[in-house]
Write a protein that binds this DNA or RNA. Structure first.
Length: 191
DNA sequence: CCCTGATTCGC
DNA sequence: GCGAATCAGG
């Protein structure tokens, strides 16, 4: 394959859209991401982001993503996989407003997002993910297993997600989404 | 391990 | 000009 006008144009377009070199290469076909990067440099349109390092991460826009999100009929069931048993040991909880996880003692409380400003969709999504979690133990954690804790650390009803993480993050995709909320939907704060 | 872009250098 | 190999980083 050679760099025809059309191919170069597509390259420019996708690159300016923030597509990664590998994505572009895949789209073009017949070239590797190295070829794409090489071409990008030769064309002199390298730096997509100004500021910090030149090799800075660049994930600005996810242009071509159908985003398979369409479940109108899914009010998010609550089977609650964790929490094996919490019978009559609890006095009462007359405030069903917010479901707050009460953890006995322990210092390192899990990142429990406290269902704060997480969108219902994301929350439901996490529920799904946690159903598929591998339930790995502490010892089974590796550099690329999701380290999101699930359950109560004070009981044996505790495990780690264990799904595959992505690119250096400590959690799987779903848990990253709840762990690193880009601080939004917080505008309802009229104080 | 997965991924990202950057650079080099023989072709 | 090209791009595989390599480098540097998340």
């Amino acid at each position: 394959m050679s760099w025809t006008d059309e191919r170069v144009e597509l390259l420019k377009k996708m690159w300016s859209e923030g597509q990664s070199a590998s994505q572009i290469a895949k789209e073009l076909g017949g070239v590797t991401r190295n070829a794409v990067i090489g071409k990008v440099h030769r064309l002199g349109l390298s730096n997509r982001a100004s500021g910090g390092g030149a090799a800075a991460e660049a994930k600005p826009a996810e242009a071509e993503k159908p985003a398979p999100r369409a479940e109108p009929a899914k009010p998010a069931p609550k089977p609650e996989p964790a929490k094996a048993a919490a019978p009559a040991a609890e006095p009462e909880k007359p405030a069903p407003v917010a479901r707050k996880a009460i953890i006995p003692a322990g210092q390192p409380l899990p990142p429990q997002p406290s269902a704060n400003e997480i969108s219902p969709e994301t929350l439901a999504n996490v529920r799904e993910i946690e159903k598929k979690a591998k339930r790995i133990s502490l010892m089974e954690l590796t550099e690329r297993t999701c380290k999101w804790p699930i359950g109560d650390p004070a009981t044996d009803d505790f495990w780690f997600c264990g799904l595959s993480v992505q690119a250096g993050k400590p959690y799987c995709e779903a848990h990253v989404s709840v762990a690193f909320q880009p601080m939004s939907s917080r505008r309802d704060r009229r104080r």
